[in-house]
Write a protein that binds this DNA or RNA. Structure first.
Length: 472
DNA sequence: ATGTGC
């Protein structure tokens, strides 16, 4: 039994605040501290922390929150990660899990989703009537109104109010840095899922009793079928990372900036390279939010096809876990990076979107395939950690190691293949997905226990998988 | 994670 959920780890370059229970802390690889020590060498940093799902990434660990004052701050593409704006979205349906008890019906739904949502490598999106420049400049506000199906009015729409930020404002000039082929590719990719750990999952809701009141305020009920989406900014964000990263690398060499890790890139916010990156980063956040919205649009159409026109799928919330932006904390402006970390604001915090002001907003935490996901809400104790919590289970084995070590049988058992409770997956061969098996990840329940134990957030509902659609 | 890289 863990007793301690927080430690300040003092390293030569500064302190990293680690939020993890005793057992998860004991399992941390020394490399995550080596990486922290490099990241702490970026000038003027005021705070850095790890969530319990922390693991080694490129330049910076996944599970990092890193903070600067806006006035003399730095921005780092390495502390954002290459999938800019990657995040979660949950929709609530009007179905009960008993209505999808039949494995054949779940399979039919998965097939319908696959038909309407491009999941194949290089697949084109179905949204040629959308202007990419409107999307990257205005986020959800740049979409034609027909894609905001839940009663759009300029002032009141669930699609727009139930996202952490429906529009990021940026310097339009920065967009000119991109060549035509990037625009072309990214336009075609709008509304596509991607691969790796990205997914659409059909889940059933199990409300956590102590938080029932909040759950019901949010419109949740026991046994409710929910749709969880995990995707990001596709090629657009990748191009931003690559392009800005290479410019930043040159700038760092010229100015003699850097740490022991050549993959750790950063620039002052006030510097031209920093400003360009922030603008393009925001454009990728706009892309990512719109992309998840369009994925949901396709899933809704599939749901209507299978369950009829009475099928409803309204958005609960959309938020990211790979990004950097400005936030106000105690009257001061900060530039906050979250790489594999989720913001979870408590009740009454003024940064909550209006519909969630009284309760705190839903914080959406995916599990690994075949395990549970969680809908949480921030707790007041999150203040010390700039309101960051975990982003998921956190990988413990590399994709290549997982393919070597994990058997298809073990994975098949986790998905209950061949039983009535089978988690229906769109893949023909499980072998291709073994690197997404639960055995490739930390135990998400243990991660959640650490977050709750540390007083950062509380569980509102557990979401159990019924079916999953992955990139093929 | 990415229409993947030397």
């Amino acid at each position: 039994m863990d007793t301690n959920y927080y430690r300040k780890v003092q390293l030569p370059a500064g302190d990293v605040h680690v939020y993890a229970g005793d057992s998860l802390f004991a399992e941390l690889n020394y490399k995550v501290f080596e990486m922290a020590n490099n990241n702490l060498q970026i000038p003027n940093q005021v705070y850095m922390s790890y969530t319990p799902d922390v693991h080694v990434g490129v330049g910076t660990c996944i599970g990092t929150t890193a903070v600067w004052r806006a006035a003399d701050g730095y921005v780092s593409p390495s502390i954002v990660g290459s999938d800019i704006g990657c995040g979660m979205r949950v929709h609530l349906t009007n179905l009960h899990k008993d209505e999808v008890k039949d494995v054949k019906l779940r399979r039919k739904l998965v097939k319908a989703i696959e038909r309407l949502l491009p999941v194949e490598d290089h697949a084109r999106g179905h949204f040629s009537d959308i202007r990419l420049e409107h999307v990257v400049l205005k986020g959800l506000h740049g979409l034609p109104k027909k894609y905001l199906p839940d009663g759009y009015t300029p002032r009141k729409s669930r699609s727009l109010t139930h996202v952490e930020q429906s529009k990021f404002t940026l310097d339009e000039e920065a967009l000119n840095l991109f060549p035509e082929r990037v625009w072309h590719r990214s336009h075609r990719q709008l509304g596509t899922l991607g691969n790796g750990n990205h997914f659409v999952e059909i889940q059933s809701i199990e409300i956590a009793e102590p938080m029932r009141q909040i759950a019901e305020t949010w419109g949740l009920f026991d046994g409710q079928v929910a749709v969880m989406i995990h995707s990001g900014s596709r090629n657009w964000g990748g191009s931003v990372s690559q392009y800005c990263g290479s410019l930043m690398k040159k700038m760092m060499q010229k100015e003699g900036l850097g740490t022991a890790d050549p993959n750790l890139l950063f620039a002052p916010l006030a510097h031209q390279e920093g400003r360009n990156y922030v603008s393009l980063l925001y454009s990728a956040l706009n892309y990512a939010v719109a992309n998840r919205h369009l994925i949901a649009y396709a899933v809704r159409e599939a749901g209507k096809e299978v369950f009829g026109s009475k099928f409803e799928m309204s958005v609960l919330y959309d938020l990211m876990h790979n990004y950097a932006w400005q936030e106000e904390h105690e009257g001061e402006d900060y530039f906050v990076h979250r790489k594999g970390a989720t913001r979870a604001l408590p009740a009454h915090h003024l940064d909550n979107p209006e519909p969630y002001r009284e309760t705190g907003h839903p914080a959406l935490i995916p599990g690994s395939m075949g395990s549970s996901s969680y809908i949480m809400v921030g707790a007041p104790g999150g203040k010390d950690n700039f309101y960051s919590i975990c982003h998921g289970a956190g990988r413990i084995r590399s994709r290549s190691q997982s393919k070597k070590l994990i058997t298809v049988d073990a994975f098949s058992a986790a998905l209950k293949i061949g039983t009535e409770d089978e988690v229906v997956v769109n893949h023909k061969s499980l072998e291709a997905l073994v690197d997404e098996s639960p055995q490739a990840y930390k135990d998400v329940d243990q991660i959640i226990e650490s977050v709750v134990g540390a007083g950062l957030a509380q569980v509102v509902a557990k979401c159990k998988p019924l079916a999953a659609v992955k990139g093929v």
